[in-house]
């Protein structure tokens, strides 16, 4: 199968001269500004010393709503920077005036609560991912490779489950958690994730691509179903498994709804819930914590981007 080398902007590809190419690149680059700006904000925010943060951001985070609107109309003249300071709008300099790592070190060294939350996040993510792999991979293999009555129906159930938002499964999950007595423990969040239908679907898509000849070779060698799965299926299905786990990690790490509903005791809260609690009063800390919350997700993203794209494509393949 020949892949298109040039462009999908049809017809244009061949006459696409340097100028047009440059113009399209420029448009694309402009479109990336919203993403770059957000990252820039987060990075410079961490490096910004506290007293500078107080001047730049504090107005946005502490001013009361009504007071701000009434004073705002009075602020329509005057030099930009001066009027910003005078009327108390937030500003954001491109670079911090005096970069420092002090808030970050303070967070890392003097804030034990932060580590508890960080660890809580992992206590949810790790069992969830482990379950997605241990329960999901064999199920995906069976759905992809075995022919048995009810296969289509089961696949349909997994797809429908995958497509239902949390609001539909919230009550069912809660009812079970109550039965099992795990409400207000991390298991109420981790277990439903562990049995998520998403990874099963993605992994089964990738198992579909394992060539039949490999399986026949294995069965001639006298390997049983399980051995074939472990020796042939798992190694060849690695891209799909990694895709599922990368998507699963992002999903769990960023989860808000589930811990919000199932974890009343704030000592069990993961970072995603804890972070919004530290705001205006401890601006420097909040900046650093935001970045540290972001770090694992972005690391996994860059490490697994290829697999992530494969995984997304798998969800889009028509059934």
């Amino acid at each position: 199968m020949g892949r298109r080398k040039l462009s999908a902007w049809p017809g244009a590809s061949r006459q696409l001269n340097g100028l047009k190419h440059g113009l399209l690149l420029l448009i694309l680059t402009i479109l990336t500004i919203p993403v770059v700006a957000v990252l820039w904000f987060m990075l410079t925010g961490v490096l910004m010393p506290l007293d500078e943060l107080k001047v730049t951001l504090a107005p946005a985070l502490s001013g009361s709503a009504t007071a701000a609107v009434t004073t705002a109309s009075a602020s329509q003249s005057g030099a930009a920077a001066v009027s910003d300071l005078a009327t108390g709008y937030a500003i954001w300099p491109l670079l911090p005036s005096w970069p420092t790592l002090q808030p970050l070190t303070e967070l890392l060294l003097d804030t034990p609560a932060f580590f508890v939350m960080f660890w809580n996040s992992f206590k949810i993510v790790l069992p969830a991912l482990l379950g997605q792999f241990l329960f999901g991979a064999p199920a995906a293999w069976a759905l992809s490779r075995f022919r048995f009555p009810g296969r289509k129906l089961l696949l349909g159930i997994y797809i429908v489950l995958m497509l239902m938002p949390f609001q539909v499964t919230m009550v069912p999950n809660y009812l079970v958690a109550r039965q099992l007595g795990i409400v207000d423990t991390i298991w109420a969040v981790a277990l439903p994730f562990a049995f998520s239908a998403y990874p099963v679907f993605i992994m089964s898509k990738s198992f579909d691509a394992v060539p039949h000849a490999m399986l026949e070779a294995a069965s001639i060698d006298g390997a049983g179903y399980w051995q074939t799965f472990v020796r042939v299926g798992l190694p060849l299905g690695v891209p799909g498994i990694v895709s599922a786990l990368v998507l699963g990690f992002l999903e769990c790490w960023n989860a808000i709804e589930q811990p919000l509903v199932f974890l009343k005791d704030s000592r069990n809260w993961p970072l995603s819930l804890f972070l919004p609690q530290i705001t205006a009063s401890r601006l420097g800390l909040a900046m650093s914590a935001s970045l540290i919350m972001l770090a694992p997700a972005v690391l996994i993203f860059f490490f697994g981007q290829k697999y992530l794209e494969l995984g997304i494509q798998a969800t889009g393949v028509k059934e």
Binding site: V38, F41, M42, G45, L57, P59, A60, L61, G63, A65, A68, V69, A72, G88, Y89, A90, I91, W92, L250, W253, N254, I256, L271, S272, L273, L275, P276, T279, A286, M287, S290, L291, M293, L294, A297, V298, I300, F301
Partner: peptide, 21 residues
């Protein structure tokens, strides 16, 4: 898609609060 919402809260407040950016 990898950026946690929780990390964004601060920025969103900075941008869109009444005295925001």
């Amino acid at each position: 898609m990898a950026v946690p919402v929780a990390s964004l809260v601060l920025l969103w407040q900075a941008l869109f609060s009444d005295r925001g950016l």
